[in-house]
């Protein structure tokens, strides 16, 4: 595949992630903060997000599995997950966390378990999508191409 075609493919894929709401404008901020001095900034921050999320999802699964659920603790974990997902622009994970926190407040264990499932699904989805995106980037760089600049107007918010 020639570079131009790969770049178009990357752009189309990026656009689909915004259109389907997996990513929001915050992800674009990350892309804007990446420059030749920090060529891996997005990958670095997103990798931290993966590590953070996996730890928190494990902690949440454990916390909700107790006989007496400590909802304060659950809420604190969800709060963190909401923060990091919002910091990288993983919009659907963030939204799932917002619902989750409402049920924590109500101390509704069944709803919390459903929310945990939902958050896990959204996390896996966006993780796969981002990994695909990064793979496309690597392919472009491997043939000496550069990652196209994303124009906010090309993405509809």
């Amino acid at each position: 595949m020639e570079v131009g075609q790969m770049q178009r493919q990357w752009l189309d894929y990026t656009r689909s992630l915004f259109l389907e709401g997996f990513l929001d404008a915050q992800f674009m901020q990350l892309q804007q903060l990446q420059d030749e001095n920090n060529p891996d900034f997005v990958v670095e921050v997103v990798s931290l997000f993966f590590q953070d999320s996996e730890r928190l999802l494990k902690d949440l699964t454990f916390a909700l599995d107790q006989n007496a659920v400590d909802f304060k603790k659950v809420d604190a974990h969800v709060h963190q997950l909401k923060g990091s997902s919002s910091s990288i622009g993983a919009q659907r994970v963030k939204n799932a966390c917002i619902d989750f926190r409402n049920f924590c407040e109500e101390q509704n264990i069944d709803a919390c378990l459903r929310c945990l499932q939902q958050v896990k699904e959204e996390y896996c989805l966006v993780k796969n999508k981002l990994e695909t995106l990064f793979r496309l980037e690597q392919q472009i760089v491997a043939v000496g191409g550069s990652i196209p600049l994303v124009e906010p107007t090309q993405m509809s918010f």
């Binding site: 903060l33 420059d35 670095e44 921050v45 931290l48 997000f49 953070d52 923060g83 990091s84 910091s87």
Partner: peptide
């Protein structure tokens, strides 16, 4: 306290 947010704010400020 969040490492992600420290990375982010650091980059924002340095930029």
């Amino acid at each position: 306290d969040s490492l992600i947010d420290r990375k982010l704010i650091e980059r924002l400020l340095k930029t």
